[in-house]
Design a protein around this nucleic acid. Structure first.
Length: 116
DNA sequence: AACATGACTCATA
DNA sequence: ATATGAGCCATGT
């Protein structure tokens, strides 16, 4: 096991139950901000081997990385919900829509400017 | 040593 | 809002 792998494994195991982290965060925390894909690789290849709380790792948008229709997606979501992680739907998230007041028309300058 | 793969991320269209 | 492409890095063959 390489240093990188070791560091990533430890970092992932540190994620507390009921909380989540990002692929990117993991990479950054082990001091290799550009190695996101390396983290992905470890998660997908060695989750079992190292007994990782793989479900606590989400993508940068805070969403589950698997396809919504996949079994893995459902599995991960279930595990998270069992830990008390709450999911919100898009409409619950959407904020009230405001209408900007139209700004009064710009007054024309009497003194011409040199550069538009 | 070269090449493919992976549960990604970012910018752009 | 979705889609596409490029960049990214550690491993396995």
């Amino acid at each position: 096991m390489t240093e990188f792998t070791q560091a990533v494994v430890q970092m992932i195991q540190k994620i507390p139950k009921g909380k989540v982290a990002t692929y990117k965060q993991i990479a950054e925390l082990v001091g290799r901000p550009g190695a996101v894909r390396g983290v992905v690789w470890i998660l997908s290849s060695s989750s079992r081997k190292y007994r990782l709380p793989w479900h606590r790792v989400l993508n940068s948008k805070g969403k589950i990385a698997f396809d919504k229709r996949s079994t893995n997606y459902r599995k991960q979501r279930l595990l998270l919900q069992r830990e008390g992680v709450e999911f919100v739907t898009t409409d619950e998230l959407s904020l009230p829509k405001y209408q900007w007041k139209k700004r009064p028309p710009k007054k024309k300058r009497n003194t011409p400017r040199m550069f538009s």
